[in-house]
Measured scan of single mutants.
Amino acid sequence: MTVRVDGVDYEFSSLEEAVRFALKMAKSKGAEVQLHNGTFHVE
């Protein structure tokens, strides 16, 4: 599972870890999280 934040990809071994990271980053940026074909994008 890959989480992309500001064009940088972060790899996670589990969906749970990836979701937690994506939500944490989105909250800190006041951004939204989108899921596309198994890849999260924080914008």
Rank of each mutant, 00 (worst) to 15 (best):
Met1Thr: 12
Met1Arg: 10
Met1Leu: 09
Met1Lys: 08
Met1Phe: 15
Met1Glu: 02
Met1Ala: 11
Met1Trp: 15
Thr2Trp: 13
Thr2Lys: 11
Val3Arg: 00
Val3Phe: 02
Arg4Leu: 03
Arg4His: 09
Arg4Thr: 09
Arg4Val: 08
Arg4Asn: 04
Val5Phe: 06
Val5Met: 05
Asp6Ala: 05
Asp6Val: 01
Asp6Trp: 05
Asp6Cys: 13
Asp6Lys: 03
Gly7Gln: 03
Gly7Glu: 04
Val8Ala: 04
Val8Gly: 01
Asp9Glu: 09
Asp9Leu: 12
Asp9His: 05
Tyr10Leu: 02
Tyr10Arg: 01
Tyr10Gln: 01
Tyr10Ser: 01
Glu11Met: 12
Glu11Ile: 12
Phe12His: 00
Ser13Arg: 10
Ser13Ile: 08
Ser14Glu: 04
Ser14Asp: 07
Ser14Thr: 12
Leu15Val: 13
Ala18Cys: 02
Ala18Leu: 04
Ala18His: 00
Val19Ile: 13
Val19Asn: 03
Arg20Ile: 10
Arg20Asn: 10
Phe21Lys: 01
Phe21Gly: 00
Ala22Ser: 02
Ala22Met: 04
Ala22Ile: 05
Leu23Ile: 13
Leu23Ser: 06
Leu23Val: 11
Leu23Trp: 10
Lys24Gln: 13
Lys24Glu: 15
Lys24Asn: 11
Lys24Phe: 14
Lys24Pro: 00
Met25His: 04
Ala26His: 06
Ala26Pro: 01
Ala26Val: 06
Lys27Leu: 15
Ser28Tyr: 13
Ser28Met: 12
Lys29Gly: 11
Lys29Val: 09
Lys29Phe: 13
Lys29Ile: 13
Gly30Ser: 04
Gly30Glu: 07
Ala31Lys: 09
Glu32Met: 13
Glu32Leu: 13
Val33Thr: 02
Val33Asp: 02
Gln34Lys: 13
Gln34Met: 12
Leu35Gln: 06
Leu35Thr: 05
His36Ile: 15
His36Glu: 06
His36Asp: 06
Asn37Ile: 09
Asn37Cys: 15
Gly38Leu: 08
Gly38Phe: 09
Gly38Trp: 07
Thr39Asp: 06
Thr39Val: 15
Phe40Lys: 05
Phe40Ala: 09
His41Met: 08
Val42Asp: 07
Glu43Ala: 11
